[in-house]
Amino acid sequence: MKGREHRLGMLYALPVAGFLALSFLAPILLVAAFSIMPQKVFTIFHMPDFSAYGEFLAQGYWRSVAWSLAMAFAATAILFVICWPLAFAMAKVFRGFTLVLTIGVVMTLFVSENIRLFGWVLTLMKGGLIEGHIRHWTGTGFDGLLYNVPVIVFGLVYVYLPFMLFPLAQGIAMVPDDARQAAFDLGASRWQILREIELPLAAPGIMVGCLLCFVLSAGAIAESKLLGGQAVIVIADEVETAFTYGQNWPLGAALAMVLIAIVGAIAIWGISKADLDAMIGRRR
């Protein structure tokens, strides 16, 4: 009986598994194949050639990878710190207001990311909303607030806030109130409750939120292009350039593979740590 159910389950999962393999795995394999293609030879039937990876190291593309990862890390850390109190309030304090807040945050997703970022460009640029007003009132202007690394991180924080906020609120909702009260009764300070009770019990939500934000930020391109100008070139930008202007598909594919490998390793490590079963309520 058990064996039959098992076989049936496999059978039912087959179409989705096939679809996932085709739509998720196939492009990655294709990119991997491109990355070991000799330059200026548009065929995948050839001897593997790893010169594109050599170029990645020699031409200093690792700097773009480092910038992308560092800014993604910074944005994720900032998002965690600013979203924790808000998510806590959504899960435990606000009652009806949580819905209002949820709708408000989700509404921003209805407008395209690029349009929202252009809004910030108009706000922050020289002669824009902020600098223009200050110059009008004080008589002295400055260069505007765009085209630097902090403003790119700001853009990442702004765009990916919902991806941190909702998983965190979900995670915090899993922390039982009586466990917090019991810890307090047993002599724990607020910080000790946060460290000993809330953070470990909300860990699945924290992990999901941080992974989403980190992975999305590491592959982000619009923030650095629109807000950052040429302050730094992120890796996604390099990939795009290699495929378009550069017409160097093997290089673009190799850069993409490096990013996929790094981000994928971090994601798999994170998912293995997070208790996703607890997150969707199968236990407790």
Partner: peptide
């Protein structure tokens, strides 16, 4: 005095054990 500074403690109805 707040609960965490009082020399008393309580066994909860739910027990409130720490599941982790």
């Amino acid at each position: 005095i707040p609960a965490n500074k009082r020399p008393t403690c309580m066994v909860f109805q739910s027990l409130a054990l720490f599941p982790h």
